[in-house]
Simulated assay, not measured.
Amino acid sequence: MRADAKKNYDHLLNVARTVFMEQGSDASLRDIARRAEVGLGTLYRHFPTREALLEALLRSSFEALAERADELQAADDSAAALMEWLQEIIAFTHEHRGVIAPMVSVIEDHESALHASCVSLRAAGAALLSRAQADGKARADLDGAELFDLIAALAWLREQPSHASRADRIFGIISGAVLNTGKSIARR
C-alpha cells in the first residue's frame, strides 16, 4: 500500500472508531467520510462494506482480547481469570456501542469478514472456561458458545439505559451461576 493510501486507511479507521463509539455500529458511513475529510469513494475503496470497516476496526481489538485470555491462562486462580476476562470483554462491547449485534450474527456466518475474529475470540473465552472447569471451579455443563451468549446478553443489558444501573449486579449473579458447579443447566 502506498504511503498516502496507508495514511488515509489509518485515518479512516481512527475516525470510524470515534464515530462508532459515539453513535454505535449503525453510524453513517457518509458521516465517517465527512469527518475524515475524504470522499465517500475513498472510504469505499478501502472498505467496500460496513462489515469490512467493522472487521478492520474490531480485528485488532479481538486479537488483543484473545491474547489477554491467553495471558490469563497462566493466572493462579482460573475462576478469577475467567471472571476478569468476562469483565474486560463486556466493557469492550459496552465501549463499542452496537458491536454485540454484528458479533452475534456473524459467529455462524462463515462467509462474513468478522467470522474468523469472532470465532477466535469465542475460542479464547472457551479455553478460560475449560481451565476453570478442569480445576473444578466452573460448572461443567456450560460450553464456550453458551458463554459467548452470556457475554452478548450482559453487553446488551449495559447498552439499555433503563437497565444499565443493574448491569453490575446482574454480572455478579451470572458470575455466581457460571462458577456454581453444584447445579446443572436444563438442556432441551
Results as ranks from 00 to 15, higher is better:
114 L>H: 00
83 M>K: 07
41 G>F: 08
90 I>E: 10
166 R>N: 11
137 K>V: 02
179 L>T: 00
57 L>E: 03
167 A>G: 10
52 A>I: 05
53 L>I: 02
186 A>S: 10
85 W>T: 01
94 H>T: 10
46 H>Y: 07
178 V>G: 00
10 D>A: 13
12 L>K: 01
45 R>C: 07
104 V>G: 03
113 A>V: 05
178 V>D: 02
1 M>W: 11
124 A>V: 07
33 A>V: 02
105 S>I: 09
113 A>E: 10
85 W>Y: 11
68 R>F: 06
53 L>P: 03
94 H>W: 13
128 L>Q: 00
186 A>E: 14
160 Q>D: 15
121 L>Q: 05
97 R>G: 12
76 D>A: 14
83 M>C: 11
97 R>P: 04
39 G>R: 05
179 L>S: 02
124 A>D: 07
90 I>S: 04
100 I>S: 10
51 E>D: 10
74 A>L: 12
54 L>C: 00
132 A>E: 08
132 A>N: 05
91 A>T: 13
176 G>W: 03
3 A>Q: 11
64 A>T: 12
53 L>W: 02
141 D>N: 11
173 I>W: 08
25 S>T: 15
132 A>Q: 00
92 F>E: 14
163 H>Y: 13
109 D>E: 08
154 L>K: 00
76 D>K: 14
14 N>A: 13
138 A>L: 00
77 D>I: 02
50 R>L: 06
69 A>K: 06
23 Q>K: 11
117 S>V: 02
91 A>M: 08
46 H>T: 02
98 G>K: 06
65 L>Q: 12
119 V>R: 15
52 A>N: 05
47 F>N: 03
143 D>R: 05
176 G>V: 06
146 E>K: 05
31 D>K: 12
136 G>F: 07
68 R>C: 01
3 A>V: 04
29 L>C: 05
156 W>L: 14
62 F>D: 08
178 V>I: 15
184 S>W: 03
183 K>C: 09
130 S>Y: 04
86 L>T: 02
160 Q>T: 12
124 A>Q: 07
175 S>G: 13
116 A>C: 04
48 P>D: 14
30 R>M: 11
140 A>C: 06
127 A>S: 14
129 L>W: 03
52 A>F: 07
41 G>K: 04
178 V>M: 01
125 G>T: 04
178 V>A: 03
128 L>E: 01
44 Y>D: 00
99 V>C: 14
158 R>V: 02
179 L>G: 00
38 V>A: 08
155 A>K: 00
168 D>R: 13
108 E>W: 11
137 K>P: 00
55 E>V: 06
16 A>W: 01
21 M>Q: 15
6 K>N: 12
15 V>W: 09
91 A>P: 09
2 R>S: 14
77 D>H: 13
147 L>P: 02
115 H>K: 03
28 S>R: 06
156 W>F: 15
99 V>E: 03
178 V>T: 02
139 R>N: 06
87 Q>F: 06
109 D>F: 05
141 D>M: 08
16 A>Y: 04
125 G>D: 00
28 S>W: 07
89 I>N: 04
124 A>T: 03
181 T>C: 14
